[in-house]
């Protein structure tokens, strides 16, 4: 899922300061999973902002709403009935959500309240880690299901750097060396030969390059 964290409250206050009527818009999807922008967080943020405004003696209207998904326009248009009541939308969606909302309501400022972080997995209670960089050319087969692009600090494709020690990464001893994990896994199912070959330079064009990436499935289109 996409992970995100809330921006500092001061930054949010600053960015919404020109507006009198603000809709705090949550997203019940990925950002709800990572406890950054779900219904609950949206309620908390809206309440916090209302209090902050009252403290500053500002007359503002701040209300909250949570969409099932901000990045799917069918959900976004459901706001059409109420959107006229607001001068701006403070979105707790990921970057994609913010932009999808902005596209539907071109006349309205859409302000992000979150910093979109990475594609991650929930490792433990309140603990999320990056596990995929969305490279567009998955190589997890070769690496025993552990992606060195996401999980090796140096994105090495041909084995660990010299800094791998006791299974830890040289950059942060908290982080396990991805290569150590890869090797352990492949050894477990006797597939170390997958690493014998030299992996050629990665084709990064699938990740970035020609503007925003697109996926088109003709069979799915109307």
């Amino acid at each position: 899922m996409i992970t995100a964290t809330q921006k500092p409250i001061d930054e949010i206050k600053e960015t919404i300061s020109p507006y009198k009527r603000v809709l705090v818009l949550g997203c019940a999807s990925c950002v709800a999973e990572c406890a950054a922008g779900g219904e609950k967080e949206t309620g908390i943020l809206a309440s916090t902002l209302r209090m902050a405004a009252k403290m500053e003696g500002k007359e503002v209207t701040i209300r909250e709403k949570t969409l099932d998904r901000q990045c799917v326009k069918d959900f976004v248009v459901q706001m059409d009935d109420i959107i006229d009541e607001y001068d701006a939308v403070l979105s707790l969606g990921c970057g994609a959500g913010v932009q999808a909302v902005a596209e539907i309501f071109p006349e309205l400022p859409i302000i992000p309240a979150l910093n979109t972080e990475f594609l991650g997995e929930t490792r433990d209670q309140g603990f999320w880690v990056e596990s995929c960089v969305g490279c567009g050319d998955c190589m997890l087969y070769y690496f025993g299901g552990i992606c060195p692009l996401a999980r090796c600090s140096k994105q090495l494709l041909n084995g660990p750097c010299g800094g791998s020690k006791d299974g830890r990464c040289e950059v942060d001893p908290e982080v396990p060396c991805a290569w150590q994990l890869i090797i352990e896994r492949l050894e477990r199912f006797n597939a170390m030969d997958r690493l014998e070959k030299i992996f050629p330079p990665k084709d990064w064009s699938k990740k970035q390059g020609q503007g925003p990436r697109k996926i088109i499935r003709e069979d799915q289109q109307r």
Partner: peptide, 19 residues
């Protein structure tokens, strides 16, 4: 090229050298 015989895992260090 460089090699670190002291990095882990030792077994793979030589594979990497070979590569």
């Amino acid at each position: 090229a460089a090699a670190n015989p002291f990095g882990d895992p030792l077994g793979f260090r030589v594979v990497r050298l070979a590569k």
